[in-house]
């Protein structure tokens, strides 16, 4: 079931994208060494994230999933090799690549609204427009009426919704998500996955979604990237037969990919 990175897949969110939303960024790693200076975590990484696709990343804990994501965000400069966005080397954080954290990514002294307004303020959007767009985004993630709440007065799931709204309010070309639903209970997590699918249908952003949950990876991703346990193991890519379709869970094709993924993770 291992596929070459160039195998065709369908990308739902490029078809239904609204006019005016930014084209998704293409992200590429070539023979990249990732980690903190003096402490490389991954080496020889080759990976191509196509514009507009949802790529989910799975791997054993400690294999460098977060390191990969922080590198793509521009927070960790690559120690070797090449990391590019649309063919140009990453020049540090920003540049339309938003990061969603597992938890506590919101600024606790800012209300939900003020958190969502932050990327707009950084992008020099006027005050009234900022407020309007923040309200719109909060409504889109189902938090209308919660604008004035501070993060500690929201539930874990609600905080992640605000993070999602905040990340998307800045109209990023790539959305990088670091186990965003990992700290939520199963029911909330399923709801958040559905919400994410709905919200992503309205953008054309490329999504890299790190998770340790194979089912989550198979539901959300167009493709699943598997990071090996060894630091220099090649990244393996799996095409998802029917992305974002709950009914596909039991189909033989999906089950085969799941079995393959679980086997690779277990071994």
């Amino acid at each position: 079931m291992t596929l070459s990175p160039t195998s065709p897949t369908t990308s739902v969110n490029s078809a239904a994208a609204p006019p005016g939303s930014a084209e998704g960024a293409g992200l590429t790693l070539r023979d990249a060494v990732l980690g903190r200076p003096g402490a490389p975590v991954l080496s020889g990484v080759g990976l191509e994230v196509r514009p507009g696709e949802v790529l989910t990343v799975v791997g054993a804990s400690g294999c460098g999933k977060s390191t990969l994501l922080r590198t793509l965000a521009g927070l960790l400069p690559p120690l070797g090799g090449e990391v590019t966005a649309d063919g140009r080397p990453l020049g540090g954080p920003g540049g339309g690549r938003a990061l969603v954290f597992q938890e506590d990514g919101l600024l606790p002294w800012r209300t939900a609204r003020a958190n969502v307004e932050l990327p707009l303020a950084i992008g020099r959007v006027g005050r009234a427009e900022r407020r309007r767009r923040a309200a719109e985004w909060l409504a889109r993630v189902g938090l209308a009426g919660y604008e004035g709440r501070l993060p500690h007065r929201l539930s874990g799931g609600q905080r992640q919704r605000v993070q999602l709204a905040r990340a998307l309010a800045g109209q990023p070309r790539a959305l990088l998500m670091d186990e965003p639903f990992g700290a939520l209970d199963a029911q909330t997590r399923a709801g958040m996955q559905q919400l994410l699918v709905e919200v992503l249908a309205t953008t054309r952003a490329t999504v890299v979604f790190v998770t340790h949950d194979v089912d989550e990876a198979l539901f959300l991703g167009d493709r699943v990237a598997l990071l090996g346990a060894a630091p220099d193991a090649p990244v393996r890519l799996f095409a998802v037969p029917r992305p974002r379709d709950r009914a596909a869970h039991e189909t033989p094709a999906t089950a085969a990919v799941r079995r393959d993924l679980l086997q690779s993770l277990g071994g």
Binding site: R70, A73, G74, L75, G92, P93, G94, G95, G96, R97, A98, L99, F101, D104, G105, L106, L107, L118, P119, I122, G123, G170, L176
Partner: peptide
């Protein structure tokens, strides 16, 4: 994380 959030927003 707070600093990283603002940095990735382009701050």
């Amino acid at each position: 994380v707070w600093e990283e959030a603002v940095l990735t927003m382009g701050g």
